[in-house]
Amino acid sequence: MSLAAHRAQHVRLAVEGAVAAITLDRPERKNPLTFDSYAELATIFRMAARDEQVRAFTIAGSGGNFCSGGDVHEIIGPLLERDTRGLMQFTAMTGELVKAMRACPQPIIAAVDGVAAGAGAIIAMAADLRLGTPRARTAFLFNRVGLAGCDMGACAILPRIIGQGRASELLYLGRSMSAEEGLAWGFFNALHAPEALAAEAARLAQEIADGPAFAHAMTKRMLQMEWAMSVEQAIEAEAVAQALCMTTQDFRRAYDAFVAKRRPEFEGN
């Protein structure tokens, strides 16, 4: 099934052309996640690997906030009744969402307004690019509920974005990172006014979608893989990756457009 044909039940999913827009839509509670929305988000990103139409994602929250994390009443409360096996099933399921986001070939843009806390901060972190607003507040607040900061890949991914020391500060203190800090530290790629955020995220997603899809997927894959490689291994891996990209029709289209002195129109193959 294509993403355009998928009828999401626990989040909003809209596919327009080559861009899929996901909206967390429980604004009265600042868009918390439930067991069902966790699973559906992972399913959507896993489906994306087989979708030939969608070339980029945006993910946002409704009502002036991004996501307040796991729903206190629908997730946190029930977890207190689970045994170790049940808790492991839950943490494996939440981790599956981040794995699905990182494995899907399409770049993901998080549009963060207002609160992005707990799992909400993780979703923003797991995206490829992040746009924020001046009122964005991002908090990896796991220690404030008696848990470790090592949740859903935070100790592996967050230091790669903002550095070890800054990540340690946020994970040990559980404090909110302001939008200005997020921009200065490299968490946010840009800040926009709240009323302009959705349009800017859509514009950026469309710009990415207009590019060479196979090559973008390869870039995302290499960005993920090369953290575990030496520089020599990375150079070798990139040589193979780039040679594969040179077999695509988009590579030829770019050459033909250059010769004809026009802008290339990529088709993703």
Rank of each mutant, 00 (worst) to 15 (best):
Ser2Asp: 12
His6Gly: 01
His6Ala: 07
Ala8Val: 07
Arg12Glu: 15
Arg12Lys: 13
Leu13Ala: 05
Gly17Trp: 00
Ala21Gln: 13
Ile22Asn: 05
Ile22Trp: 04
Thr23Gln: 13
Thr23Lys: 11
Asp25Glu: 12
Pro27Tyr: 05
Arg29Asp: 09
Asn31Lys: 04
Asn31Gly: 03
Leu33Arg: 07
Leu33Thr: 01
Thr34His: 07
Ala39His: 09
Glu40Tyr: 06
Leu41Gly: 00
Ala42Met: 01
Ala48His: 04
Ala48Asn: 01
Arg50Lys: 15
Arg50Thr: 13
Val54Cys: 06
Ile59Lys: 04
Ala60Gln: 14
Ala60Ile: 00
Gly61Ala: 06
Asn65His: 15
Asn65Gly: 07
Cys67Ser: 15
Cys67Thr: 07
Gly69Met: 03
His73Asn: 12
His73Gln: 13
Glu74Tyr: 04
Ile75Leu: 05
Ile75Pro: 01
Pro78Ile: 00
Leu80Cys: 11
Glu81Phe: 13
Arg82Cys: 11
Asp83Pro: 03
Asp83Lys: 08
Gly86Val: 07
Gly86Gln: 03
Met88Cys: 09
Glu96Thr: 11
Leu97Ile: 09
Leu97Asn: 03
Val98Pro: 05
Met101Trp: 03
Arg102Ala: 10
Arg102Leu: 14
Ile109Arg: 00
Ala110Asp: 02
Ala110Met: 02
Ala111Gly: 05
Ala111Thr: 09
Gly118Leu: 06
Ala119Met: 15
Ala124Asn: 02
Met125Phe: 12
Ala126Phe: 00
Ala127Val: 01
Ala127Ser: 13
Asp128Gln: 05
Leu129Ala: 13
Leu131Ala: 01
Leu131Thr: 02
Thr133Tyr: 00
Arg135Ile: 12
Thr138Pro: 01
Asn143Cys: 11
Asn143Pro: 10
Val145Thr: 09
Val145Glu: 10
Val145Met: 14
Gly146Ile: 07
Gly146Val: 08
Leu147Cys: 08
Ala154Asn: 07
Ala156Ser: 12
Leu158Pro: 00
Pro159Phe: 06
Ile161Ala: 00
Gly163Glu: 02
Ser168Lys: 15
Ser168Pro: 03
Tyr172Ala: 12
Tyr172Gly: 07
Leu173Met: 11
Leu173Ser: 14
Met177Asp: 01
Ser178Asp: 01
Ser178Lys: 03
Glu180Lys: 10
Glu181Val: 04
Gly182Glu: 01
Gly182Arg: 02
Ala184Val: 09
Ala184Arg: 15
Gly186Leu: 06
Gly186Gln: 08
Ala190Asn: 10
Ala190Gly: 14
Ala196Cys: 10
Ala196Leu: 14
Ala198Trp: 08
Arg203Phe: 09
Ala209Glu: 05
Gly211Lys: 03
Gly211Gln: 06
Phe214Gly: 02
Ala217Gly: 15
Lys220Glu: 07
Arg221Glu: 14
Leu223Trp: 08
Met225Phe: 12
Met225Cys: 12
Trp227Pro: 00
Trp227Glu: 13
Ala228Arg: 14
Ala228Val: 12
Val231Glu: 15
Glu232Asn: 01
Gln233Trp: 06
Ala234Thr: 15
Glu236Asp: 14
Glu236Leu: 10
Val240Thr: 11
Ala241Gly: 04
Gln242Leu: 11
Ala243Pro: 09
Thr247Pro: 06
Thr247Arg: 10
Thr248Met: 06
Thr248Pro: 05
Gln249Val: 08
Phe251Thr: 10
Phe251Lys: 04
Phe251Gln: 04
Arg252Thr: 11
Ala254Glu: 11
Asp256Val: 14
Ala257Asn: 04
Lys261Tyr: 08
Phe266Leu: 12
